[in-house]
Amino acid sequence: MKQRGIGVLLILLAACSSSSGQGGDASGSESSLAGTWDVVGTRLGDAPVSGQLIVDADHLTLVFGSNSFAALRDGDKFAVVAGFGSTASANTAQRKNGPTANLGAVPLNVSGSWYIASGSESTGEMCSWSLGVDSAEGSCLYVGALPSWVGSPAHATATAQRKLTAPSIFGDLGGEWQVFLSTGGTCTARFEGGKVSGACSGAGEFSGSFEVVFAGDIASGSTDRGLELSAKRR
């Protein structure tokens, strides 16, 4: 949970980015988190670093230190480009059906069924996922080059079930989810009001807990290992 911890926070921030606009409480109103955000995150043993997140209904761009991620929608497809230091990859995410859930404040509705194919046709399908109102599943057959701290999700599957419901700015995600990893680990994730929290056990480097609070134009959170992140909408 070293770099991965902050990775989880960033992914959550990117995935969830949209919020109410009237800073302050995290009561569960569903104004979009769309916009451009300044991001400040800490690194273990190094100075904090600033970055930028841009998200709306059609695209998502995250630049953080030497890492970057961009997804641009074209109908039911997204062109996805990721760069981690000197490692880069270009892929296409294609929606097979959906959207199937209301994600509330999340500007990019990624519910429904999707698969990701490599930019290189020879490698074929890499990963697929589906997200519905009460369940989710994701699996990967092949994954291109990723930095070591991301880990390899190749030949791995994760399934999730919503066990409890709760009011949340993230719409149908609201409540508590249980996630089972094919590698043997389990996680719980909770979406309540403007807060997202979770914990994993038996998940190797992903074991540990995190919490992110979205409150209007500002979001912040941390992992149980002391990594921290905050973002403010411009």
Binding site: A26, V40, V213, I218, G221, S222, E228
Partner: peptide
Amino acid sequence: PRLSALARDR
């Protein structure tokens, strides 16, 4: 405050 507490400023 901690960086991670900025969203809970109030």
